[in-house]
Amino acid sequence: MVRLIGILVGLFFSGWLLVTLVVGFIAWASEPAVKTAEHEFHQHPKELSLASDGPFGHFDTQQLQRGYKVYKEVCSACHSLRHVAFRDLEQLGYSEAQVKAEAATWQVPGIDAVTGEANTRPGMPTDYFPKPFANDVAARAANNNAIPPDLSLMAKARHDGAAYVYSLLSGYQDQPAELLKEFPDAKTPDGLHYNPYFANLNLAMAPPLADGQVTFDDGAPNDLDAMSQDLAAFLVWTAEPTLAKRHQTGWPVVLFLIILSVLAYLAYRNVWRNEKH
């Protein structure tokens, strides 16, 4: 009885799936696939090699300092960094005094000690990076109806993380003529900007970086490509400040476990030496 019902249920599910498959295949084969501009012109991120890559990856603090400067002078006008505190900057190689001085260059929301009214005050190491807009409505109003996303986790919140950030920042270009020829309706709307690395090709953010925009104290190159890489490296750090410690911890753990495996194997062979199996 179980088998009879089972076979009937199986015939029902499998049979209906095969019917659906045949009908779906005929529809799929007879209708030409609709091509879209996104499908044809979207590009995968460019290759990016950072010190933090791979199981031996660590942070290049010089590069992180440069990336931080790009964030401070450019990105922070619109993008928050809400999971990062000024105290975290010590990990970029700054001393405690330097961090204190750096925090004080930022204005953070405060409360007037006398009147209790909201005001701003210089930041302290314990403060988190302030938000550039008071709320989402203000952020939308100032940015062509698009809220600039928080950047803290950006390098983990997109496929290909850092490579995506780097490609997007350095990937703005004029809309290709072939695209307009093939898809006349896909012209980039006014106020948006064409970028083949963005999922739907048109991005509200104007090209934020240009050659020579930020001057680095260490005299490192400051063309668009180099700055985009530095910022991508910085965002890898903001997304996971514990990354280097994770790699450092991982090697002793894995090596210990490999040795343990060898010893466990020898123990197993030794225990079983007189038993055939």
Binding site: G6, I7, V9, G10, L11, F13, S14, G15, L17, L18, T20, L21, G24, F25, W28
Partner: peptide, 18 residues
Amino acid sequence: FVMFSQLAAAYYFAHFLI
């Protein structure tokens, strides 16, 4: 992908029940 899912799912039920 959906067509392949239909084929694979059909086999899945057929395998256990038939």
